[in-house]
Design a protein around this nucleic acid. Structure first.
Lengths: 204, 204
DNA sequence: AGTAGATGTTACGGGTTGGTAACATTGTCA
DNA sequence: TGACAATGTTACCAACCCGTAACATCTACT
């Protein structure tokens, strides 16, 4: 068997997993490479042999998260083929899981946001991921027949990022727990805007 | 004149101002006491004479921000006496300023959210402020005749926190720039929920 | 068996940061 | 003038953290 140790994952994978976990929990600045190496049941030297620097490790972690996000969209489209409305509704539901479930890649992205102001090499990677999500979600809203798809995309973006933030700082008792109900209401409002009562209440 | 130096503010005030500014820009973990003292045109020793530790300084800064938030509500109610609907609409507009204008106390609160997981003494202070805001906003929504005031409060909470977060990481090009338009739409939708088309689109 | 490559261990260097000690300086009030 | 409090200056410590060097160990493949 030339297989590279299927039972115990190789150190590189263990390090990435541990890093992602700890970055989520403590933030990128909040955890040291020593702690990561130890949590990965490895050591600092092999960490630095695989990743030239902590910044490089961060980039790899974020790229890994981006790859998993790719699966998110694949699954979503596969679950409701040729039914954008159902996809949009299911997006809300699944996004809700991403907010509340601790083990999600999104928390890694928001940890990366701690790197603003200092031009961390991971910044533009995060930016690309954000753009990709936005583009896909916009296409989804457009296909679902929403009147102002771009505005709904921005609304959902603010809601989900706010939810992730709120969940971190306020916990399960905070507003983030009701993300799905809120997002569903907002989506419904945008859908109704082009079907039911045109200019609802507010004279614009 | 026994007045304590009206022209140049005393060191304590200068330190608090500098700290708030730098905490906003770099986050609490991202700036050192040395830099704060220098920015305040003071030095580390007087900083530690006034505030026993960096954590204490953080708490004072947040309490200062909370006091200013008190003014926010006072001004809002004074601007539209006995007109909760106008107050709610104006709340959205003013909240939008708090998102985009760099010099705002909210950024201090979200900087404080970097302290999650480690039970920083500032955490429960932030929690209290958050509760106060929520309570006042809920009362406002109720008085404005919103059908589900609590849900709208949570929605606006997620939107504004998401906007602050997004503004930091995505800048003026991101979704945060359209916060006001989004929030107005959401508010209108909640207002219409109790007036126009009852159960809009979604069978709940 | 033996060799090469990946991994583990220990120790260290240089930098930053929170916090303290000791002393000098300034300004105020009697 | 003299005394006292607040402030400034310098130096320092201990802890932490990123990154590297040197050496030991293990594993795989021939």
């Amino acid at each position: 068997m030339t297989a590279p140790a299927r039972l115990a994952p190789p150190p590189r994978e263990r390090i990435i997993d541990a890093a992602r976990d700890l970055f989520r929990k403590h933030g990128i600045r909040g955890i040291g490479v020593d702690a990561i190496a130890e949590a990965a049941e490895s050591n600092k030297m092999t960490l630095y042999r695989h990743f030239g620097s902590k910044d490089d490790l961060v980039v790899v972690c974020i790229e890994r998260a981006a790859a998993e996000a790719e699966d998110f969209w694949t699954d979503l489209k596969a679950a409701h083929p040729d039914d954008p409305k159902a996809q949009l509704q299911d997006w809300v539901r699944r996004a809700g899981d991403f907010v509340t479930v601790a083990h999600c890649n999104c928390e890694l992205l928001d940890a990366a946001a701690q790197l603003v102001e200092s031009d961390h090499p991971a910044r533009h990677v995060v930016e690309e991921i954000r753009k990709g999500h936005k583009r896909r979600l916009a296409a989804l809203c457009r296909d679902a027949g929403v009147a102002e798809p771009d505005l709904l995309v921005d609304a959902l973006t603010l809601l989900i990022e706010g939810a992730r933030f709120n969940w971190r700082s306020a916990g399960p008792q905070g507003a983030a727990a009701r993300f799905v109900a809120i997002a569903e209401t907002v989506v419904a409002a945008f859908m109704a805007k082009s079907a039911c009562c045109g200019s609802a209440g507010k004279a614009h």
